[in-house]
Design a protein around this nucleic acid. Structure first.
Lengths: 207, 207
DNA sequence: GCGTATCGGTACACTGGCGTATCGAAGGAC
DNA sequence: GTCCTTCGATACGCCAGTGTACCGATACGC
């Protein structure tokens, strides 16, 4: 993933011609990595410049300011938090979803943590965060629930249905405060088995 | 430089004698307020000094640094997020709890948001945050569940029991990202009715 | 090839917060 | 009433990050 390991030691950094889309992706990846590592406030333009081996002038020419760069990074790397999942049962879908989340918890969970407070104070940032990370995850989960209702696994008007995504995202966000570490697959799986599925009226032993 | 630029004090600020416990509470309250308003990173010693009308020297003499001041503020104002609640039924307790949380959501929810990311990078801060806010809330909720099991409302080994507090705290923390505003009483109540209680096997209509 | 636009890199002035030092003044002890 | 402590306030040096300006180098269009 990280392109920096293939740069052993050129005598001087090779000059670039223009900001190609591929090059922009490198910037975006660096920005998101730094956000995950240290948070929004600790992200600096100088840090981005030095990590990506570019001049600050390039950053300011292209994006203007740190908030704009972060928003662009979110929009520019809209990658699915959840892959497409369709196991045939709601319980299976949810189990697979938390497996995927736990597997990728080194990626999107820290990012949400890093941006959530900053986003509450910047409408643009909140909008970008929701579009890039939150709404896709919500949509994916709601789609699983919808299919489950369509198949008749749960009633179409199951009142717990609308809270499934909030439960999952919520527990992802609160676990670090309770346990000091991100929610892993094993915890999330137990949560789904023992809390989410029962709230929908599905027993823990449902296949 | 010249005394002409600011004349904010018609009356002279009354000198204080020493940092009495009451005075310390004023500092702590100011710190927590500023945390709620702007977050941990934006909190500055200079800001605290000017808001509390004290000299920076006083802050540094007394607390040494910003992290220590914040930790002291958390410890020094350990106020119950939840009042003591015992309505006689688990469902009643949980409904009352979310009512209290929703009512006080202008106080502790923003505080948790402000500190959660910083706490993940500072063990002392995480410890203080847990002791001051999180563990008391956890204990209160778990106590409700324990009493419910004792009364036979739910099985003693109900597997969903351990997730009740995580469900509640989690949804409190994720709501702003989904809806752009803190969880209010009405949302939390619907959540308890439609997700938490059903996950415990209690119907929504249980008194 | 050649010209030009853009790059990476650096220097600069500016800002804001940190932490220290110092000072006059007021409170409290006696 | 006097002395001594501690306060509030401010000035200072320091550092880090911002955003601009300028440079030589170089990839690309023609």
């Amino acid at each position: 993933m990280s392109p920096q390991d293939v740069a052993p030691e050129p005598a001087h950094t090779p000059r670039r011609s223009k900001i190609t889309p591929e090059r922009a992706q490198e910037f975006y990846a660096a920005v998101l990595d730094m956000l995950r590592e240290s948070g929004y406030e600790a992200l600096t333009m100088e840090g981005v410049a030095s990590r990506t081996r570019c001049g600050k002038s390039t950053l300011y020419r292209q994006w203007g300011s740190k908030p704009e760069l972060v928003v662009a990074a979110l929009h520019g790397t809209r990658q699915a938090l959840l892959p497409h999942i369709d196991t045939g049962t709601l319980a299976g879908d949810l189990r697979e979803a938390v497996r995927a989340i736990g597997e990728g918890s080194g990626r999107d969970t820290p990012l949400m943590h890093a941006l959530s407070h900053a986003a509450l104070q910047s409408p643009e940032l909140l909008c970008a965060l929701r579009e890039a990370l939150i709404l896709p995850a919500l949509a994916a989960i709601d789609e699983m629930v919808r299919r489950g209702a369509e198949r008749g696994e749960i009633p179409a008007d199951n009142p717990a249905a609308e809270f499934v995504s909030a439960q999952l995202l919520g527990v992802m966000r609160v676990r670090p405060l309770l346990e000091g570490k991100y929610a892993d697959e094993s915890y999330l799986t137990r949560f789904v088995e023992n809390a989410v599925l029962p709230s929908l009226g599905l027993g823990a032993s449902t296949p």
